[in-house]
């Protein structure tokens, strides 16, 4: 069974195909922020060039965020429609989990941080376990300073990954025990998505297409303003 992975939670548009033999093909486009324009043609290109028919896809995996809302919705709507049309199950994977996957061999505390705009970050903590990493606690939304204080409070050696960490590098530079992973590892990858989804597919952790929704972590502004007004 082959897995199609779709990843659009950052500025990047990514897709990959793989299975038990690993990743067979992948493509990532980071320039342009043209998620809706690029994604379907990228999937078609990937299938054509790797000579995989869409009818061979047995699972659609998608990065459900947190991340940029519009990109996420393009990815999730596309992935759900593909799974619905192909009549195959889905697996949703967190963007922050995807960021931790390539650095899973580190014994340090792993922290992934994606740019949430408006001076904030989406972040999560991970620790090495046999066979990979495990997330400690929930996804969080906070300022770079919030994260810096949390890192300091752990007192541990930390590996910090993601475009959010890179954007607010000055908030973390002074922390002696924190190492920032260099560019090349800024965005979640579709390859990591396929590999993580494969592991979960072996455990049959499937989801129905209509059960998959983006992880927003932030309510719509209108709702926030409304409840503020209500409380006043």
């Amino acid at each position: 069974m082959l897995i199609l992975g779709i990843e659009t939670s950052t500025m990047q548009v990514g897709c990959a195909i793989g299975g038990h033999e690993g990743v067979l093909a992948s493509t990532h486009i980071t320039r342009g922020k043209r998620h809706a324009e690029n994604l379907t043609p990228a999937v078609r290109f990937l299938c054509e060039q790797s000579q995989v028919g869409l009818d061979e896809i047995g699972l659609v995996a998608v990065d459900v965020g947190p991340g940029l809302f519009t990109g996420l919705r393009v990815g999730v709507a596309t992935a759900k429609a593909l799974a619905f049309a192909l009549r195959v199950p889905m697996i949703g994977v967190s963007s922050l989990d995807l960021m931790a996957f390539p650095v899973r061999f580190s014994s340090r505390l792993i922290v992934t941080a994606l740019d949430a705009r408006r001076g904030e970050l989406y972040y999560a903590f991970y620790r090495q376990v046999p066979g990979g990493v495990q997330r400690i606690g929930d996804h969080q939304l906070g300022s770079p300073d919030d994260l810096a204080s949390e890192l300091l409070a752990t007192g541990e050696e930390v590996l910090l990954v993601g475009d959010g960490a890179q954007r607010y590098v000055e908030a973390f530079e002074g922390l002696a025990k924190v190492e920032l992973v260099e560019p090349g590892n800024r965005s979640p990858s579709a390859e990591a998505l396929v590999e993580l989804a494969h592991a979960r597919a072996l455990r049959e952790e499937f989801e129905r297409p209509d059960a998959i929704e983006p992880v927003y972590l932030r309510r719509p502004d209108a709702e926030i303003n409304w409840s503020t007004r209500d409380g006043a």
Binding site: T70, A81, F84
Partner: peptide
């Protein structure tokens, strides 16, 4: 509304691709 339009456009293109 651009964000609203993108949901329908993305889903429609994916369905067309999957059904050829």
């Amino acid at each position: 509304l651009v964000g609203a339009l993108l949901v329908g456009v993305s889903a429609a293109k994916a369905l067309a691709l999957a059904w050829d």
